[in-house]
Write a protein that binds this DNA or RNA. Sequence first.
DNA 1: GACCAGGTGAATA
DNA 2: TATTCACATGGT
Length: 277
Amino acid sequence: MEKIIVNSKYFNIRDTLECGQIFRFTPFEKGYLVFSRDKVCYAYTEGEFTVIETDDYDYFYNFFDLDRDYSECVKNASSFGVSVLETASQMGRGIRILNQDREEALFSFIISQNNNIPRIKTIIERLCVSLGDKKQFGKISYYSFPSALKLAEKSKDFFASLGLGYRDTYLLETARKIKDGFNLDKINALDTPSLRKTLIGLKGVGEKVADCVTLFGFHRFDSFPVDTWIYKLYRENFGGTETDRKKVSKFFTDKFKNYSGIIQQYLFYYKRTLEEK
DNA sequence: GACCAGGTGAATA
DNA sequence: TATTCACATGGT
């Protein structure tokens, strides 16, 4: 067991987990257990520090993007003279964009479409319990996220029984494609537009899911996913009039460039916490 | 019942 | 190219 200790000003564990980029975490003692692939860590706040306890130091150091200076991101977000950006980036300054497992991000966001976050979490948890490997972390037992190969063996009805709804075929077809050689690591060599296009070739992956996967699975900060919340914010806070989500995304990426992804998270988190009751 | 949730695929014009 | 509609499921 090792500990990573970081000043919490630009690394808040709650904000990082609750901002909607990851679905596998659970409250535990002073903080959270966070799961990624077959790994786990225990993360909590202690005074002015964020503490990560784990058996996989290097993995989680990279996972939480600890080499990046996020004060730069907040500074950039504030530089546009738009008050909502000022507010949102201050509120979300502790958010880090996670370096998630590519397969896990891909399948998770296929499940996310036209769905709400609590239910997405439930479905993913069921997937792990029924197909993942049982693992041990101290006294805690948990399940890994199942590989595409494992998913590809199951039937459409099996996924339907887990509550995936019409997304059952999307998950199955994408899992089979990966089993047949579609390589998520190889396509990391592509630039973001080509990567997006390639991902959209998968069943169940459209503009929005592709943007989430490039951002959360491939760490492409020039991606700006537009979901229903961001679309609402675009109209209400930016006076936007475009209805095509693709054009809305372009509006923001043209403005925010290589800070698009992190600013999108500031805005998403802000809008969602503001409106939740 | 209607409407919504981190939308997409397919049909249509 | 752009618009429209069905699609499972569960919560409000």
